[in-house]
Amino acid sequence: MPLVESLKRLNPDKDRGVFVFYVFIAAIAAFLCCLPFSTSIQRIMMSKFHLTLNPFSRWAAAQCVPSMYNFKNEVFWSFQPQISFNRADPMTPHLAVNHYPMRMIFFTGDRRGAVFHEPLYIYLRSTYRGRELVTSYLLTSTPQRLYVQFLNIHERSER
């Protein structure tokens, strides 16, 4: 086992960089292993995807934690402030997203698809092991820019 062989040969004085790197990786691995069991860590990682993890430095640290294709993520949008998350309803536009659901609005070569004549309510929804986080934003567009304003967070647990 490569890791075991390396640890056997590790001399913390001579291989200080290796030692520090292992400590760093081990800390993040431990954090990740707690994800299925810790509601706090689930909230942190979902909030990371919803861009609501404050302060920014905390979000920046969380960005270094690998989380590709984590959770079931969706983005819903509506001109009305109230919405039902009924995917079967053709009047409820939505998209399933791999991560960072807000990216469906801005991460595109043509942002004109997000330009509307009136403000649009955006709902980011992530679910994981019975826990649901919904974050709502208001998208307003002008001829010069798209502006997204945070509105609300709603958290729910089935447990």
Binding site: I25, L32, M68
Partner: peptide, 18 residues
């Protein structure tokens, strides 16, 4: 080699647990 495998492992651990 071990650190390289740890980097690869960590990135997929993040994907796996989520």
């Amino acid at each position: 080699r071990s650190l390289a495998l740890c980097v690869v492992g960590l990135n997929f651990l993040g994907g796996f647990v989520g």
